[in-house]
Amino acid sequence: MNSHELLTIYSAKAIEYLIAVAYVVLFIPFWRYVNGRPAAARVPAAERARGGQPTDWFRMAEGILFHPGHAWARVESPDLVTVGLDDFAGKLVGSLSSIDLPAEGTPLAQGERAWTLQTRAGAIDMLSPVDGTVFAVNHAAVSSPRLPIEAPYEEGWLLKVRGRRLAANANQLLSGSLARRWMEDLTDRLRSHMGLELGLVYEDGGLMIDGFANVLDPEHPELVAKHFLLTDGGGSHA
């Protein structure tokens, strides 16, 4: 091999050098283009997909399926879900004196009574969002009943349920934009209802009062709560 070959200029080599230089030069604007203006366009798209934006008054959460009786379910694995009560239910009752959760191994059926909230006004049942068997109980929520009210989708979960019909159950639950519309609709109706009851109009939002069942009917808040939580044996929402 000729030792001078590497230094010999010939046309193909010149073109190769030019291509290498062109690559480096063009890569700079390419890189700037790919990375440019990320926040304005990208974040809203991803945020929209998160589907868990809170409504004015009630917090929702990502990855949650909602039961119309204000219980939620989060699928953890193909046969395991975590369930709890949603922010609406928490703000509805305001505070709990205790919470009666079913023991591990108890069978649950979607839409049937699952646990009971003990309030000053009386006991209020809530419905199970899924079919299955209780696999674990959140003892922290039992010993500290504020937890399901303050952090309903996080530390305030109530049960872990092993279910075998989760796909079928999920079809009966609300998620994503559907859940958001449902909660917004409830909020709107509540807003007009509370306006009539109290003469208060929350045109630009404001914060919902904890224990608003007491506001709606100071005599029988438990009946209002049962009405919203679908355990009053019939009727419709506000």
Binding site: R50, G63, V75
Partner: peptide, 27 residues
């Protein structure tokens, strides 16, 4: 049915990141 909505949203970020890497390698 196996994946929560948060995982779906995370996937959007992941997809954008992988897309960027793929475009650079394609370049």
């Amino acid at each position: 049915n196996q994946i929560g909505a948060s995982a779906h949203a995370d996937l959007e970020y992941i997809t954008l990141g992988l897309g960027k890497a793929a475009s650079v390698v394609l370049f």
